[in-house]
């Protein structure tokens, strides 16, 4: 481990977590500080998920599972964003029992942008403004009935603005 970077160690740890977490929970030997399955259930800030470069790692840490594409998740995003510092994105869904909506940008230095908890009685529809470093896929994840559904759209960025 001495010749690997911290970054690599971290990535490797994430992979191990993702693969083994279900089995480990079953055996009651979970000893990580981050608990993916619980992260979305309580109000604690998902600190580790907000450190991931890769969207799949962020989703795994946030939810402990993967999403399937669904045409019931609708994303409203521009085809071309002239200013990457302010890209208006909104998401809505016709799915019921929605508990959270999450926005990710694949090519940003940190993939996870925002994750919104939707309690009972709040409509599954959110608008916000995000930063994009360059042309990238934008991914919306909707958690509904304990399952994850996603929509993906490429947004072309003419002037990058990760941080503005």
């Amino acid at each position: 481990m001495s010749i690997t970077t911290n970054e690599f160690a971290e990535t490797r740890r994430m992979v191990l977590k993702g693969a083994g977490v279900a089995a480990l929970i079953g055996l009651g030997v979970v000893s990580f500080d981050a608990r993916p399955a619980l992260a979305a259930a309580n109000d604690a800030y998902p600190k580790e998920a907000f450190k991931q470069k890769n969207e799949a790692d962020a989703i795994k840490l946030l939810y402990g599972k993967t999403a399937e594409p669904s045409d019931k998740v609708k994303m409203d995003a521009p085809e071309i964003a002239e200013n990457g510092a302010v890209v208006p994105i909104s998401a809505t869904t016709t799915l019921s029992d929605v508990t959270s909506i999450t926005f990710l940008v694949s090519e940003n230095p940190i993939a996870l942008i925002a994750s919104y908890r939707i309690p009972d009685g709040t409509l599954p529809s959110v608008s916000n403004r995000i930063k994009m470093a360059k042309t990238s896929n934008v991914i919306v994840i909707v958690e509904a009935g304990g399952k994850l559904y996603s929509a993906t759209k490429e947004v072309k960025v003419t002037v990058g603005g990760c941080g503005g």
């Binding site: 109000d43 800030y45 998902p46 907000f50 510092a85 302010v86 890209v87 940008v105 940003n108 940190i110 996870l112 942008i113 925002a114 994750s115 919104y116 908890r117 939707i118 309690p119 009685g121 709040t122 916000n128 403004r129 995000i130 930063k131 990760c162 941080g163 503005g164």
Partner: peptide, 12 residues
């Protein structure tokens, strides 16, 4: 609580 946002540095 009716809405909770967890944000990173990628929000404008």
């Amino acid at each position: 609580p009716i809405f909770l946002a967890n944000w990173g540095g990628g929000v404008s």
